[in-house]
Amino acid sequence: MNELGYTATIEEMRELADVLLKVGTMLMSAGANTGRVRNTVNRISEAFGHSVEQHITQRSIMLTMLDDNGSSIFTSVRVTPHHVINFKTISGISKMSWSLVADQWTIPKIREELKRLEELPHYPRSQVLTLVGLAGAGFCSLADGKPLDLAFTFVASAVGLYVRQESLKAKFNPYMAVYFAAFVASLIAGSSSKLGLSDSQNHAYVTSVLFLIPGVPLINSFSDILDGNVQNGVTRGFVGFLISFSIALGILTSALIYQF
């Protein structure tokens, strides 16, 4: 015990709060729902014998360290980086949060693990493009597309994703990137029926943009609302709505060109 009556020094607590905020913001930007962020941060802080209160929003996390009587010692805030869905991060942090409870990790070890998780590579671009192209073909098949439609959606989805990645690299607004991707994908897929190669009611045309659907924001929106984090849920739902709207605009632009 020090002169303030805490078992840990203020410096130790600041360090812990810093790591906790780092964990929280990493989870949030990787696409975890609010309940998961809260639970994971609480689990880690409890492993160090501290309790914390959190205020979690889409773009920042605020955390208050509490003393043994439950009154606040200090509060810190950290801005969440741009949301880039990365399930490897979520999985890695979840695994870490359990083993650090079991094996009593130190703070430097947690920092090391977080650094390792941040540096984990994404899958090679060619593989992701191929798999997303196949996913497009899958959507087309679910909508009763013919083999030729499947081939067109494969190309359209892969090129669409390429356009989205390039637009994001060129620092376009994320919604603009979705719009460009939807426009290019539907333009490519729509050519099949425009050239008279396919007669199956534009199935390729519609399903080629489905790789853009905002699955994570929409599903997390409902998990957050059911969990009581209504504000975050509504925010996520609105983000999902805006992405869907961008997709619709993209597909309607090419419909205007093709006169469908």
Binding site: G31, I85, N86, F87, K88, S91, H122, Y123, Q127, V128, L131, V132, G133, L134, A135, G136, A137, G138, F139, S141, L142, S157, L161, F211, G215, V216
Partner: peptide, 24 residues
């Protein structure tokens, strides 16, 4: 069964997009 297969493939595409660990 044909559609289910393609449904699985579509799910895989999203798995790659979301950078899911290989083991899942």
């Amino acid at each position: 069964l044909y559609k289910s297969f393609w449904g699985g493939i579509a799910a895989l595409g999203f798995a790659a997009l979301f950078n899911v660990p290989v083991r899942s």
